[in-house]
């Protein structure tokens, strides 16, 4: 579990995160949602240690980040996996080299063991016959799957995804969502997903945190999203006519107005 207490982050005079408390649970897909500019990406980068926070605390299974030495932080990073918004695959390396890269760098494994683990991860994300291709030669959906394979290759305890569905068609986006959900359950990972895709919210939102103006404005799960009376949250999630209709129908079914 990742525990966040009162974290603040400013860039110059601009206060982006204004004291956020949140818990991200093991074996669950934890979603961070919010409007553009609400501080989602900064929040995620703070969790990853890519931004230093100004106040507050982040603990990974009871290990406070602020009390860690450099060496411990580096060891913690080996427990993290990250899927970036644009996949962030290394252009000069093939699909196979991209996935095996963390293993080559850190794992004490033989060449054949690295090959086996790489192929296992690529198979797990349903990538076949693309080992020798470069990122530029595969589709956006495949790049995302390769990025997931690379993120899980070191058996991470924590998986972070920054808008994993951006730029994908709805069907591929759903496949990626399902894949992340399956992997989270299969390997009992604490998964944190930064998204503004409402399909993802309704499909895989085990624990949802809604950010507004750098603060946590709402917390709940995908069922509670339907029943919430929080107007700001409802306005954000059900902004389209289709979602408004779905919400009305679901609330009527539950005897709510």
């Amino acid at each position: 579990m990742i525990q966040v207490t009162g974290i603040k982050k400013s860039f110059g005079d601009v206060e982006v995160l204004r004291g956020i408390d949140a818990n991200f649970y093991e074996g669950k897909t934890n979603l961070i949602i919010g409007k553009s500019g609400s501080g989602k990406t900064v929040f995620l980068k703070c969790l990853l240690g890519l931004h230093n926070i100004n106040a507050g605390e982040i603990s990974f299974d009871g290990r406070p980040l602020s009390e860690m030495e450099d060496k411990q932080r580096r060891e913690l990073r080996l427990e993290l996996g990250m899927v970036f918004q644009g996949s962030a695959l290394f252009d000069s390396l093939t699909v196979e080299e991209n996935v095996s890269f963390p293993l080559k760098m850190f794992a004490n494994m033989s060449k054949s063991e690295i090959e086996d683990r790489t192929n296992f991860c690529l198979k797990r994300v349903n990538i076949a016959d693309a080992n020798a291709r470069f990122p530029a030669e595969i589709s956006g959906g495949m790049q995302k799957r390769v990025a997931i394979a690379r993120a899980i290759v070191m058996n991470p305890k924590y998986l972070f995804c920054d808008e994993p569905n951006s730029g994908l068609d709805p069907k591929t986006a759903m496949v990626i969502d399902e894949l992340i959900k399956e992997i989270t359950l299969e390997f009992n990972i604490t998964t944190v997903i930064n998204t503004h895709d409402m399909n993802s919210v309704m499909q895989i939102g085990d624990n949802i945190i809604f950010l507004a103006d750098g603060k946590k404005a709402w917390e709940g799960n995908k069922e509670e999203v339907i029943t919430t009376d929080d107007q700001e949250m409802a306005d954000f999630v059900f902004s389209s006519e289709l979602f408004k209709k779905i919400r009305r129908a679901a609330r009527m079914e539950q005897g709510l107005r």
């Binding site: 890519l50 060891e75 990073r77 990250m82 962030a88 695959l89 290394f90 252009d91 070191m154």
Partner: peptide, 17 residues
């Protein structure tokens, strides 16, 4: 520069490299 703006450098940092 391209690695920086396409977050490839961030990816290395997250991996602990």
């Amino acid at each position: 520069g391209t690695m920086r703006v396409s977050e490839q450098i961030d990816a290395l940092e997250v991996m602990g490299i």
